[in-house]
């Protein structure tokens, strides 16, 4: 079974494209539409990588990240945050919450794939 990746984004088309790209490369992909949904889907299970949007209705990416990192299962799970260049203040908040990898939207699927394979291997 491939490495597992959770994609959290309120845009169905972003989830679809990211999911398609990663599944095509052999990863197992879980999808969630906001932080709350993601925490529910994760439960106590661990994923190898989380890709999360910052700005989402319901629970936003930063709060989600904090809650996820507070739970033992995904305390050390790497996170790629999807952000816009206008969100510098949020970047700092994300950094404090433990995010180190950022991808600026809009991005190309190939760029995402490259980042993912750097972090968790192909």
């Amino acid at each position: 079974m491939g490495k597992s990746v959770l994609i959290v984004d309120d845009s169905a088309s972003v989830r679809q494209v990211v999911g398609m790209t990663l599944r095509g490369a052999g990863y197992t992909v879980l999808e969630a539409s906001d932080g709350r949904d993601a925490l529910g889907k994760l439960g106590d299970s661990r994923v190898n990588l989380v890709i999360s949007d910052v700005n989402m209705p319901g629970m936003d990416g930063i709060s989600f990240l904090k809650e996820m990192k507070a739970r033992p299962a995904n305390k050390f799970t790497p996170v790629i945050m999807l952000t816009t260049e206008s969100g510098d203040s949020r970047k700092q908040a994300g950094k404090e919450a433990g995010a180190r990898a950022w991808i600026v939207k809009p991005f190309q699927p190939a760029q995402l794939l490259e980042a993912v394979s750097k972090l968790v291997g192909p």
Partner: peptide
């Protein structure tokens, strides 16, 4: 917020499809 998010989400998704003029 919902106005902002709408523009933000359209931009982000359009980028994935390479729709640069929309981005």
């Amino acid at each position: 917020n919902s106005l902002f998010r709408a523009a933000h989400t359209i931009k982000g998704s359009a980028g994935l499809f390479g729709l640069d003029h929309i981005v």
